[in-house]
Amino acid sequence: MLAPGAPVRVRDDWPEARGPCHIRTPHYLRGRLGTVVRQLGSFPNPEDLAFARPAPTLALYHVAFEPRSIWPDAGGDEIVVELYESWLEAA
């Protein structure tokens, strides 16, 4: 379980390259460093639900990112995204 404030990195993984899949981690976050805002609860993994497979439950976190670390021309001040624990590693 990740605590609020914990630094995390989004896995730099590209399942799209390996075949049919359904993922809820946007491409622009892969490999990026962020900070846990809080846990939002636990939910069945949509990557399995999308194929009507048995879906293990995963912790879901709100994670904050610095927009200019993603796009140097970004115009906002903070990006916050829901991410499942399976996509996060300690940083």
Partner: peptide, 22 residues
């Protein structure tokens, strides 16, 4: 902790519905 820079997203096959910042 990995110190590597994230890979350049333009090198990867972004799915076409995945539109953030494209």
């Amino acid at each position: 902790m990995s110190q590597s820079e994230p890979s350049d997203t333009s090198e990867h096959p972004r799915a076409h519905h995945d539109m953030g910042g494209v």
